[in-house]
Design a protein around this nucleic acid. Sequence first.
DNA 1: CTTAAAAATGCAGGTATTTGCCTGTTTTAA
DNA 2: TTAAAACAGGCAAATACCTGCATTTTTAAG
Lengths: 247, 247
Amino acid sequence: MLKKERQAFIIKEINLHNKVLSSDLSMALDVSEDTIRRDLNELALEGRVVKVHGGALSKSYQMAAVQADTYAYEKKEIIAMKTLKLFKDGMVILTSGGTTMREIAKRLPESLQVTFFTISPLIALELAEHPKADVILLGGQLSNASKVTIGAEVVQKISEIKADICILGINGMDLDGITDSDYEIVQVKKAMIKASKQMIIPTISEKLNTALRYKVTPTADIDCLITELSPLHDTIQPYLSQVKLVL
Amino acid sequence: MLKKERQAFIIKEINLHNKVLSSDLSMALDVSEDTIRRDLNELALEGRVVKVHGGALSKSYQMAAVQADTYAYEKKEIIAMKTLKLFKDGMVILTSGGTTMREIAKRLPESLQVTFFTISPLIALELAEHPKADVILLGGQLSNASKVTIGAEVVQKISEIKADICILGINGMDLDGITDSDYEIVQVKKAMIKASKQMIIPTISEKLNTALRYKVTPTADIDCLITELSPLHDTIQPYLSQVKLVL
DNA sequence: CTTAAAAATGCAGGTATTTGCCTGTTTTAA
DNA sequence: TTAAAACAGGCAAATACCTGCATTTTTAAG
């Protein structure tokens, strides 16, 4: 077997599996691991693969990892635009925290006249930039990790509100229901759902079909599910029958 | 599974759920928790995640550290250091907003164990970075201009607190008293003073000898006045007889 | 076809990295 | 205050790596 042939095989293998192990290739091609290593080093030098300890990864794999900070930015933008269409003048909107909600807050149209209740200081500050929006920050103990207010006082305050819609950021959701990993936050979210006529869930599709420790609410209670995907997309199909409206 | 692969998985998981637990990852990836810890430490070192006890958090969830260069930064730093000397373990501290207060919050010693009540979401978020500080955000309508919560609800909540000290950011002050230009905020500040055993005023000297529309409280009620100047400085002299303690 | 130069390969050894386990300590939560 | 969980640092086994060198293969010119 020629060297070029061998390297072509390696590239093919990487394109297929996004990674290769030196040991596997050594077996498959029946050459010493040293030879494989030399091949991988050459390919890495040409920039065709990314060499790592034990084997190599595809270039695209590495790229995805690098631009992780702009993770899902475009998706969240799409979701934000879809969500904003549901806002009408005079509405009372109850919202949790999360980066998706923040994207929504940033894009709030100037002309819109709505009242926001929120448990997130960050979202509150973002909304405060808006000239016509009324922003009420729900006070309470500030959670160190998630940077939203939690505790009995918040739950109590929320119970006194009658909101038109509540925008709930989520961390996990499957056909069974919405789940979260923080017990305190679950309590607050439950109160938010109870206080609102409609529940809207904006989320990137990746969070679908994942479950966390604590249940927030069954999927059937969702009034509107908003993802970056078309409602016709395969991933969304199972949810169509459960959720009233999917955007 | 290659190390890079594993770390990419962790990053993806964090972007998805905003946080991960070492134990969960250990299960999911079928490696020891030690290995996960090492991965998280590496990723934290690269600044890709924020390591916490038990797992890691998403970086974006941390404060957007877009440091707007605060006016009179050095002066406020001096004031902050002086003010921090008054903080003792176990104290309940009531604070308003303002950039000076923010500098204080940033410099809070790691070891200090105190409870903060604040009307400023910004201060609250800053304090939330502190591992031992308990932060309670006083909820209410968010003032568009000053970015603190105001209104009857806030005043009511403050009246229920018994604080050891209150740190009051000010806008104007002369020998006659502390003044402010926003009526709503004056109401809140009055409530804060009433709810606290001691009133501490940290301010840059520029604000001394200026007066605004509404009176908050007479100068004689101040327990401690803190400026960037020495108490021996000419500007401070007239206040020495009125204020209990000047730093 | 022969043969010398160049390239590629395998091997030996010594080094470096990764990982799991163990210890004792710190942190957290009840 | 205490018990459980998480942590840090060190150790050791396994694996991967690199360097230099001898051997084989390929190449190409005579």
